[in-house]
């Protein structure tokens, strides 16, 4: 079962040439209630992303797996998450993940060209996922505001 999850993640790592501007949409979770798809919005590369559970229970951390090859060094890394509503971007969460001097995570300080694989918990701090369909954009960028990871999520919750 585990291999079944890891193989597509690794396959996605084989990045395609930069001439492709629109990356394919991947489904990371689909059941009767919840459907989550994503597409890389980084013009340079696609992204491999997976979760270990397709149901959301408030208070329980979700383990995610994310893999990519860095196009930029990340001495500092920040994340912006925003809700896309009618073409407008509404910021909902922002945090600095890596600081220069005393980084918390092992991937902090990685160099351009290095391969990153992160498997670990992510706490959403949400009571629950709202009902309906909505789009969320997540962007990770470095100290020079170069996009390190960019993904648009399509979430449908019945």
């Amino acid at each position: 079962m585990k291999a079944f999850k890891v193989v597509p993640v690794l396959l996605l790592l084989i990045y395609t040439a930069a001439s492709i501007t629109r990356w394919p949409t991947h489904t990371i979770c689909k059941n009767n209630n919840l459907e989550v798809k994503y597409r890389s919005c980084d013009p340079l590369q696609d992204l491999a992303l997976g979760v270990d559970s397709c149901s959301y229970v408030p208070g329980i951390v979700i383990n995610i797996r994310i893999a990519t090859i860095l196009r930029y060094t990340i001495n500092e890394l920040s994340v912006d998450i925003s809700l896309i509503l009618n073409g407008q971007t509404i910021p909902i969460y922002a945090k600095q993940l890596c600081e220069q001097n005393h980084p918390e995570f092992q991937f902090c300080g990685k160099k351009k060209g290095e391969y990153i694989y992160y498997e670990g918990p992510v706490s959403l701090n949400m009571e629950g996922i709202p009902q309906g369909e909505f789009n969320i954009s997540a962007q990770l960028f470095n100290e020079n505001r170069n996009t390190v990871v960019c993904a648009d999520f399509f979430i449908r919750n019945r």
């Binding site: 980084p103 918390e104 995570f105 092992q106 992160y118 918990p121």
Partner: peptide
């Protein structure tokens, strides 16, 4: 001069 000991958040 300076010793840094410890882990990472995810390790």
């Amino acid at each position: 001069n300076s010793l840094v000991l410890g882990d990472y958040r995810n390790i």
